[in-house]
Amino acid sequence: MKVEFESELWVWDARRDETWTFVSLPVDASEEIRARAGGLRRGFGSLRVRATVGGSSWTTSVFPDSGRNAYVLPVKRAIRAAEALTEGDVTAVTVELLDL
């Protein structure tokens, strides 16, 4: 399953040092992922993905966020630097689930 969307980068409220910066997957895509995953999950409810932002691709995991009712994708510092992204920027994202 592959999801393409645009999302705003946000920093996890518990850590404002930009160590934990995320984008949120669309709610409808998150619901479809939950349905397809059917209980297949790793630690913290994560699912393995291949993510692409701009010209950068990497393997990571998405995590369920009950407050947003969506999966969230961490965007590591190296990717943000390579793509010149900061909190509040909106970017195009592609997420391909690896285990589904």
Rank of each mutant, 00 (worst) to 15 (best):
E6S: 07
E6N: 03
S7Q: 03
E8C: 02
E8M: 11
L9W: 02
L9I: 10
L9T: 00
W10V: 04
W10F: 05
V11N: 10
W12V: 01
W12Q: 08
W12P: 01
D13K: 15
D13W: 13
A14I: 15
A14Y: 15
A14G: 15
R15H: 08
R16E: 09
R16F: 06
R16C: 05
D17S: 13
D17C: 12
E18W: 09
T19A: 14
W20L: 09
W20Q: 00
T21N: 04
F22D: 00
F22H: 04
V23H: 02
V23C: 05
L25E: 04
L25V: 11
L25H: 06
P26Q: 02
P26E: 04
D28C: 06
D28R: 12
D28M: 11
D28A: 12
D28L: 14
A29D: 14
A29W: 13
A29H: 13
A29Q: 11
A29I: 13
S30T: 12
S30F: 12
E31Q: 15
I33S: 03
I33F: 02
A35D: 11
R36A: 13
R36V: 15
R36I: 14
A37V: 05
G38E: 02
G38P: 01
L40M: 11
L40N: 07
R41M: 10
R41W: 12
R42H: 05
G43A: 09
G43Y: 12
G43I: 08
F44E: 01
F44A: 06
G45E: 12
G45M: 14
R48K: 15
R48W: 11
V49G: 03
R50C: 07
R50T: 09
A51H: 12
T52M: 08
G55Y: 12
G55I: 15
S57W: 09
W58E: 02
W58Q: 00
T59M: 14
T59A: 15
T59H: 14
T60P: 04
T60V: 11
T60R: 04
S61Y: 07
V62D: 00
V62W: 02
V62Q: 01
V62H: 00
P64K: 05
P64F: 04
P64D: 00
D65C: 08
D65S: 09
D65G: 01
G67K: 13
G67E: 11
R68F: 09
N69Q: 10
N69T: 09
N69D: 09
A70E: 07
A70H: 08
Y71S: 03
V72Y: 02
L73K: 02
L73A: 04
P74W: 08
P74S: 08
V75D: 03
K76I: 14
K76W: 08
K76G: 00
R77V: 14
R77S: 11
A78C: 02
A78H: 06
I79N: 01
I79F: 03
R80G: 00
R80F: 06
R80C: 04
R80A: 00
R80E: 01
R80P: 05
A81K: 12
A82H: 10
E83K: 07
E83T: 08
E83V: 10
A84I: 05
L85R: 05
T86H: 07
T86P: 04
T86N: 08
E87P: 08
E87A: 13
E87I: 12
G88E: 08
G88D: 09
D89E: 13
D89K: 13
V90F: 05
T91V: 13
T91L: 04
T91N: 03
A92I: 07
V93K: 00
V93M: 03
T94N: 01
